[in-house]
Design a binder for these strands. Sequence first.
DNA 1: TTTAATTTTCAATAATGTTTGAAAGTTATG
DNA 2: CATAACTTTCAAACATTATTGAAAATTAAA
Lengths: 166, 166
Amino acid sequence: MEYSEAKQRYIEAWGSLGSSWGVNRTMAQIHALLMIATMPLSTEDIMDELKISRGNANMNLRALLDWGLAKKVLIPGERKEFFSTDKDPMVLAAQVAKERKKRELDPIIRLLDEVSTVQGDDEQVKEFRKVTTDLKGFAKQADSVINTFIQSNSNWFFKILGKITR
Amino acid sequence: MEYSEAKQRYIEAWGSLGSSWGVNRTMAQIHALLMIATMPLSTEDIMDELKISRGNANMNLRALLDWGLAKKVLIPGERKEFFSTDKDPMVLAAQVAKERKKRELDPIIRLLDEVSTVQGDDEQVKEFRKVTTDLKGFAKQADSVINTFIQSNSNWFFKILGKITR
DNA sequence: TTTAATTTTCAATAATGTTTGAAAGTTATG
DNA sequence: CATAACTTTCAAACATTATTGAAAATTAAA
């Protein structure tokens, strides 16, 4: 396969994967580009490669910085800003986990905490309390797993899982 | 808190959580409703509760069946179809993991398998090969973890993780 | 300080995704 | 078989989200 074809297919795939992971398509594509870049890229490099507008490139680069998935790189003698990303998949995964936990899991746990205290003793309310309490328990387990995962900045997580699942 | 308020907030939250999990809002809300129902619900029950059209209710119930997140229940003497869901969060999570793996992880692994074979020995191509190969390795690890998780239909997964993360 | 390079913002537009409602299709019952 | 109960489909309307491009703001160099 030609490099240019491979590259294109990879960027496209990463983009559509991103959109099912709470990261919008363009954002994921920019990230894909940074992953395979041999050196930091400027906004213009990205506009050219992905054929997107300046505004779009800028907004999504901001978002990537915000998610902790890209960082600014200052190149001596250059006026422009350049961007790069950490290329270790584990670091990437931990970063995504961290952000999504903050945006999604934490709020739902807070909500379940509240609503599971609803008072009453008829069938419906009892069931509601049971279900929301169960969900809360589950969410909290998930939370602690994710916390551990985030804190470990090496591969130990998968190393252990590897042993379990072998 | 009043039951009706708690219920409403829970359904809303579940809906917005769903949308960041690759499940559309209404689909997630229907699922939320089934979770707290004391008995199977008909399409009309759902239309009434969520104030949605028949078509919408029908489409999203289909989708839930498709994802394995709801099942038809036949009630003797009733002409209508009724629906219910498994209320164990672990079963639910395993089901979601299974579907998403099929829809997302499997295709990306296939793609990475292909593109990481790109030939050439200049800097760019070497880097591309390295990154895509690393990603593939990571994706395969994730795949095997998910497979184990899916197959275990009890709590052993979190029990073990509990020990690790304590 | 002035100028030129660069980044940011945002209203308008385009693209995508969701919902409706009514008509067509299906199935069970008398 | 005819009818009524129920389910499915789908084009059009609506809603949401993403993108553009040009003007405004910022920053660095002369």
